[in-house]
Design a protein around this nucleic acid. Sequence first.
DNA 1: TTATATCTTGCAGTATTTTGCAAGAAAATA
DNA 2: TATTTTCTTGCAAAATACTGCAAGATATAA
Lengths: 249, 249
Amino acid sequence: MLKEERQQLILNEVDLHNRVLLTDLAEKLEVSIDTVRRDVKELDGGSKLRKVHGGAVSLGYTHTAARSSNVYALNEKMAIAEKAVGLLKEGAVVFIDGGTTCLEMARMIPPKLKLTCFTFSLPVAIQLAGMPHVDLIFIGGRISPESMISNGAYTIQRLAEVRFDYAFLGTGYVDALHGLTEFDWDVVQLKKAVIRASKKAVLLCISEKLNSQHRFKTCDINEINTMITELSPESNLLNLFRNQDLRLL
Amino acid sequence: MLKEERQQLILNEVDLHNRVLLTDLAEKLEVSIDTVRRDVKELDGGSKLRKVHGGAVSLGYTHTAARSSNVYALNEKMAIAEKAVGLLKEGAVVFIDGGTTCLEMARMIPPKLKLTCFTFSLPVAIQLAGMPHVDLIFIGGRISPESMISNGAYTIQRLAEVRFDYAFLGTGYVDALHGLTEFDWDVVQLKKAVIRASKKAVLLCISEKLNSQHRFKTCDINEINTMITELSPESNLLNLFRNQDLRLL
DNA sequence: TTATATCTTGCAGTATTTTGCAAGAAAATA
DNA sequence: TATTTTCTTGCAAAATACTGCAAGATATAA
């Protein structure tokens, strides 16, 4: 039997039952379990199934599951998040931005650390609301459906009334020369307001975004105090950022 | 059985009953209690359920709510929610309270109806944020972890700046003589502010709560314009409320 | 055709994950 | 407070996954 043929049968089986066991597949297709394991591994990452311990499940199956399963570059983001929570100090007043990296950070806040957290991101708020030791304040306003954050004049006004020890920010694009930039003008206005409201701004940014730019500018690099990537601070990729008054983590 | 399969079943169970005990899950899924405990722990932190002592509750059905009110009364709440969305008119500016019945209502908003919705409940906001036709505005403030709503002086101040066509409200307790009452003083202050900010107040209330009362008073029955229960408006159980200037649904 | 390179498959040994159990800690309950 | 239930932690057994390797299959080129 051809490999392609076998893989097609595997996809059919998953489509039909939403889940399959590797042992069942091996028996049904009359090949060793290693072979089906390799097949499933190849098919994993496609749009049809996801490999799990002991078998595979159809993509739609776990789609409703709670896990933030389909976060792009999850490992990198978790590495960044881990460094970021390292900066947190007992009793600090911090702001946490929306975006998946910041969401990971919120997830990783240690369970005993007392904090006051501000956010305007619904997913981040849901995370933090589950932490009784975190004093959570949501900055209200009109919620934009794509990003699940509040934005607009009202929100920006509210930001003028507070002052954070640290703001943990994401960005769409970042470049040593052009600073932090975004695709969306409204988002820029919002982030500007956050930076104005914070004593120290910490940028959480996967290395992929380094040296990219877009239309609208949030701020220069030197308005950021610390930049956290998943890379080692000594990495060559960070060279362009090294001669700035910027702490790299 | 695959782990993913099991976790999916747990989510279904939580979705269905809003609350599950670990011991029940272990029995139903035919695994040890440690295994379901670990599963629930993994699912916790996602957007579907929250782990509590001895079990798990769906988001929005908080710890305290799980104890003080009948979380199993999903059918009744859906019946109420259905009547409530019937009151919605294109272009209206409405407020939707926290609480499980109001959350059901948010879920049932028709997919074409253009609305402006205010809320201070994170679970409600998450629901509405997924509806592109709904203009959603979150009223910010300090989030109380049990109820996942913002509350406090700041929130109440914000409520003074708006005016709703309709406010859809829940209550802890209701009684024809003593009106709407609550266990929690802060909640009372908040609801008062909502009622002040709305032209018409609609109470969503399962019949179980009728003729119950508690320490702190939100308002008299005559400050409510419409009361919706899962009962027929002709039901004898509603007799005590009938001689008021109150529309029953 | 023959020789060579590449791909596929199964096997064996090792690593990792999952699961259930037990003992002590923590929390809820009376 | 005392008692019961639930939680956490560490551990061991079982299941599953990964890796390198070798034999066979297939493809390519001289």
